[in-house]
């Protein structure tokens, strides 16, 4: 079987590399940490996908915006509700936004 490299398979390979790295050196907790962050960044990538940017730019901007803006978005709701629940809700909202923008 020949693996054709494209956007999705590359994201998948990178995610697997990080998950394996985490698993080998830090166990399941490390693996979940890395995978979790990759999953959090993905909606930002798809939101940026709706703009005229190169693939490299989308990847890098989604990482830099995602890693700082996502936690920022959890702060105020986290004052009122469970922080853990807020992380999930903010992620769901961003995913829905990405889906809506791509469908448009």
């Amino acid at each position: 079987m020949k693996l054709a490299l494209n956007e999705k398979t590359t994201i998948g390979i990178v995610a697997i590399l990080f998950a394996l790295f985490g698993l080998i050196f830090f166990g399941m907790s490390g693996s979940l940490t890395f995978l979790g962050w990759i999953i959090i960044i993905i909606p930002f990538y798809f939101i940026l996908d709706t703009f005229n940017l190169s693939q490299g730019e989308k990847a890098i901007y989604s990482i830099f915006i995602g890693l700082a803006l996502f936690p920022a978005l959890t702060y105020w709701p986290g004052r009122l509700f469970s922080f853990r629940m807020v992380v999930v809700i903010v992620f769901a909202a961003l995913s829905a936004l990405a889906y809506f923008l791509r469908k448009k």
């Binding site: 830090f26 907790s29 490390g30 979940l32 940490t33 995978l35 979790g36 962050w37 959090i40 890693l67 700082a68 803006l69 996502f70 936690p71 920022a72 959890t74 702060y75 986290g78 922080f83 853990r84 992380v87």
Partner: peptide, 20 residues
């Protein structure tokens, strides 16, 4: 808050407040 909320998010993802 973003930096520290980021660390806390990592802790939540990895299920602990030390290694993650």
């Amino acid at each position: 808050p973003p930096f520290h909320m980021g660390l806390a998010t990592g802790g939540f993802l990895g299920g602990s407040s030390t290694v993650p």
